[in-house]
Nucleic acid binder design. Structure first.
Length: 422
DNA sequence: TCTGGGGTCCTAGGACCC
DNA sequence: TCTGGGGTCCTAGGACCC
């Protein structure tokens, strides 16, 4: 039995946590550069604001309805997420952190004297009391069904935030009421295709012959089919798998033209990516740099170039040398750039790095230096120690006009409670 | 004019080996 | 008309997730 715990309107809930005046008001959180809406309060959803909708389309509505606007504050959301996950780990020895706002819990073998539903309510109440974030809980025999259950927990008021699909009858009803496009694993492409064939609900899909599903929608489609029919195909992964690639990319706050400015951005991205690489104990065998010009395709310049390292590395210094080479290859004078990114590829565990007879780099020295940088930055603040190439005019930095304070991670941002004197 | 960022898996087809 | 059998690796494209 699996429980899916899903935070309600997570980014908005994080903003509300330290700013209760936002309760009952429409609130939205923007993507990077304040470009799109990526989180909405229920009040904002009711106004018809869509997920991913561009901000410029909504300017009038924001004004008229007095919508509270926020730039993404991922430092805050990440910290609150860790707290939620830490509370959840008290309720099951097997927890899979599936995303920043969701986790699967294995409930098998847990003593639940009042049953799974009461247990789920206790989970939700505890998260609310300890962290202050509202969550919905769905319980079912497979992850895909648990997803549907949590959906219902959120959508249907009488469930009060908890939905347990315990019996085959309850599961069948839930499937019949679940539009095919809402099924985990059926996306934007497959849903219209299935609708054309008269498959409009999860139930319809689960009734298709298995061989046909396999033939038309490959093994992934078949797994979804089996999960809907109660057969476990996806188990819980407690340890996050080591990444096969690490990407850091950003849209610039304004168009950037000079090589030095683009390089400064690439240096920052490489540094962040390399730090993520070291955190998982890996080294990368190749660096890819891509840039995108201003405007829309076609006609907008796009370039990407990969550089292979002679020996896989996790050193920011070394990776940046190759990133620079790649950038030199794709950079075109006179072009105005709106976005750039760095992708670390051919990732291997650090201890499995294939050495080279002709290697001239003192890897031990690099490694010790990176360790010092990482530990200092962890204690004192990210990028306090950095490469010179990362500092400069910072003209590429994103627009973030509606950023909230880092209430929980920065001393200067901690809320001050004032005592009013009479 | 203005539209995010970060991932994974699967398949088909081409190129190659014996 | 008939034309072996078995494999690997790589890439592009398509699909999905949050």
């Amino acid at each position: 039995m699996y429980a899916l715990v899903d935070c309600n309107n997570f980014f908005v809930s994080c903003e509300r946590l330290f700013n209760p005046s936002l309760n009952d008001r429409p609130v939205v959180v923007f993507s990077g550069n304040d470009g799109c809406v990526i989180a909405r309060s229920n009040e904002a959803k009711a106004l018809g604001i869509g997920m991913g909708q561009p901000a410029f389309e909504l300017r009038e509505l924001f004004e008229r309805e007095k919508v509270a606007l926020f730039s993404s504050n991922h430092i805050l959301y990440g910290d609150i997420s860790r707290r939620v996950m830490s509370v959840l780990s008290q309720f099951s020895p097997e927890v899979e952190v599936y995303s920043i706002d969701e986790a699967f819990l294995v409930l098998d073998g847990i003593t639940m004297p009042y049953g799974a539903e009461v247990y789920a309510r206790t989970i939700a109440e505890t998260v609310m009391r300890c962290v202050g974030i509202p969550v919905s809980v769905g319980i079912a025999p497979t992850k895909t069904l648990a997803k549907i259950a949590s959906h219902r927990a959120k959508k249907i008021a009488r469930y009060g935030g908890v939905c347990h699909l315990a019996t085959p009858d309850q599961q069948a009803i839930a499937l019949m009421e679940c539009p095919i496009g809402d099924v985990w694993g059926i996306g934007r492409r497959l849903a219209p295709k299935l609708l054309e064939q008269g498959v409009s609900t999860a139930w319809d899909f689960s009734r298709l012959p298995r061989e046909r599903v396999r033939r038309l929608y490959t093994v992934e489609g078949e797994r979804t089919w089996r999960e809907l029919n109660g057969e476990v195909c996806y188990s819980v992964d407690e340890l996050p798998a080591s990444r096969l690639s690490v990407t850091v990319s950003r849209t610039f706050g304004q168009a950037v033209t000079t090589f030095d400015d683009v390089y400064e951005a690439v240096a920052n991205f490489t540094s962040t990516a390399a730090q993520r690489l070291r955190r998982q104990g890996s080294a990368a065998g190749a660096v890819m740099v891509f840039v995108k010009g201003r405007g829309c395709s076609p006609g907008c310049y796009m370039g990407a170039l990969q550089c292979t390292l002679p020996v896989a590395s996790d050193s920011t210094i070394e990776l940046l040398q190759y990133a620079r080479k790649a950038l030199v290859g794709v950079y075109r004078r006179g072009e105005a750039y709106k976005k750039a990114g760095v992708i670390l590829q051919h990732i291997v565990p650090r201890e499995h790095v294939q050495l080279s007879l002709f290697d001239t780099v003192d890897r031990e020295k690099h490694h010790r230096l990176m360790q010092v940088m990482d530990s200092v930055n962890k204690q004192v603040g990210s990028k306090v120690l950095r490469l010179g190439a990362e500092s400069g005019r910072q003209v590429w930095q994103a627009q973030r006009s509606h950023l909230s304070p880092c209430y929980t991670t920065s001393f200067s941002d901690i809320l001050v409670v004032k005592a009013h004197e009479k």
